[in-house]
Computed example of a mutant assay.
Amino acid sequence: MSIFSGTIQNLENGLQYSTTKQKTIAQNIANVDTPNYKAKDVTFEQFFQRAKQASLPAYRTNDRHFDFKMRDYSPGVFNYANIRYRQNGNGVDMDKEQANLATNQIYYNALIDRVNGKLNSLQTVIKGG
């Protein structure tokens, strides 16, 4: 029996996703005046689809049982190919990027609070109180 039953690893995957999204948003903001730059994004849907496709074969007692899933997730970054917000071909919408930045920061802080809660619970159990 695992102490956290995969919770810490799932939180770590969420933090990895949030970090990749933060880097992508920062790159978009940095290139807001670059001609012909196309905005990039990271979506959970693509992240989840890749995770669903990565499975390990396992002995199943029933055909309805799921295969074991691999835990090596790496969120993918994609370009918005056909979007232009300026005459120079730039595809960055600064208002959208700032809203995404704030949303991602809240998500990241929530994950960090959850990890701290899990580790504090473990510390309390170890100390016996």
Rank of each mutant, 00 (worst) to 15 (best):
Q22G: 06
V125E: 15
L119E: 10
N88P: 09
K96L: 13
L15W: 01
Q123F: 12
R84F: 06
V32K: 14
Y80V: 00
Y17L: 12
Y85H: 14
A102L: 08
G14W: 03
V77F: 07
N62F: 02
K21R: 12
N36W: 00
Y80W: 14
D41S: 08
A26H: 03
D63T: 03
F78T: 11
Q46L: 13
K23T: 10
T34F: 09
G6S: 14
Y80I: 08
M94Y: 15
H65Q: 12
A51S: 09
R86K: 15
R71H: 05
N120V: 08
P75R: 01
L119K: 09
T19R: 04
T34E: 05
Q22E: 06
S74K: 07
F66E: 13
Q27L: 04
H65I: 01
P75T: 00
I106Y: 00
Y85W: 10
S18C: 03
Q123D: 15
G129T: 13
A58H: 05
F68L: 01
S55F: 11
V32P: 11
I83Q: 10
S74Y: 05
A54K: 13
L15E: 04
K69N: 03
D33S: 13
K52D: 08
I83A: 12
K118Y: 05
R60E: 12
F48L: 15
D95K: 07
K118N: 10
N88K: 11
T43I: 08
P57L: 01
S121F: 07
G128T: 11
K127V: 11
K96M: 13
A81L: 05
I8K: 04
I106F: 08
Q53R: 09
F78L: 00
Q22A: 08
A58C: 04
D63I: 09
R86C: 04
K127L: 08
K23A: 07
A39S: 12
I25N: 02
T7H: 01
N88E: 13
A102N: 06
V92M: 14
G129R: 12
L101F: 12
A54I: 02
A26G: 10
R114M: 04
K40C: 00
V115Y: 05
N62Y: 06
A51D: 03
Y107Q: 02
A81D: 15
I112V: 15
F48N: 14
A30D: 12
L15T: 02
R71S: 07
G76L: 04
S18K: 06
N82S: 11
T19K: 03
N82A: 10
A54Q: 14
K96G: 07
I106E: 07
G129W: 10
F47T: 14
N100E: 13
I126H: 13
Y17D: 03
I106S: 02
Q98K: 14
A54T: 08
F4H: 09
R64V: 15
T43L: 04
M94G: 13
